[in-house]
Amino acid sequence: MQNIVKEKKNNSFTKKNLLITAGIILGFLVVMYLAEGNLLNRQYKSLIVPIGIYIILAVSLNLTTGFLGELSLGHAGFMAIGAYTGALITLNLNMPEAVEFIIALIVGGFIAAIFGVLIGVPVLRLKGDYLAIVTLAFNEIIRSIINFLGITGGAMGLSKIPRYTNYIWVYILVVLTIVIITNLVNSRHGRAISAIRDNYVAAESIGLKVSKYKVMAFVIAAFFAGIAGVLYGHNLSVLKPADFDYNKSIEILVIVVLGGMGSVRGSVIAAAVLTILPEVLRAADDFRMLLYAVVLIAMMLFNSSGIRTKLEESGKLPKLPKLTRNRAK
């Protein structure tokens, strides 16, 4: 019989894993060269950190949208929680930079994750369009509460946040995010999540606890959004509630959609492209929004209206994975 399933060794020291490790180190050297060398001017160097932050945001949102198949329009809300938590920690602690920042990152991620549970448990009972709208509502609720509270500086926001974020921190966290989410997706937990996306009735029938795995995916995504928020705050040094409105959530969604739902690699590439493109085009913010709109509409029409199927059948386009959830009746 042909050996369809690849034999896997029983430990982590496979050839593939060694190659990946080598790739990660090589990648770091490249990023270091770009950040420190003379190849890029200051304007482009300043994009390295935001690209990394958007990669973390997009890869984590892809877990909810691409793998769990639920549209979350509240990712910026979790990012805000992480950003404010992290900023308040480094503003109030008097510890060495590295210690303070690590605490901020971890706590920021965890508080966002806790909110992920609080919001996820009720919200994930809903499906489809309703779920999307409620996550949007929570995004707005979080933002107006931050706007209202004294500790977060109200509408003025927080300023003088130490600029701890640099390309090294970002690179480490980007790698960690990608590795953890990719590993998760290819594990028993990840299979449960994808199974729920494909058919939740069948998923229940084979003994999967649907709500548990939905919440799990949602919370893990929230955790990484929180970390991205901490990085974001310590990069800009100022935070305002208005930074985390629903447009920010959509911005992250645009990256996921462009990169392809359910594709981690796609999210990484799209995050880079969509951060660099407006800079290269030197376009005003007005055009950035137009670009997002066109990406969303064009991608959906291309993927789902049958244009792609036609192209694929005529052989003009290689077959690619597709969107998966069926319209709820």
């Binding site: 949208t65 198949g69 549209l71 329009l73 489809g128 369009d129 999307a132 959509i250 969604l253 959609v257 739902m261 997002y292 709109a293 066109v294 990406v295 969303l296 509409i297 991608m299 959906m300 029409l301 993927n303 789902s304 209206s305 969107l323 998966t324 959830r325 069926n326 319209r327 709820a328």
Partner: peptide, 12 residues
Amino acid sequence: APSLAVLITAIG
């Protein structure tokens, strides 16, 4: 198309 696609188009 899946409802997700329609909603995303509408947002676009």
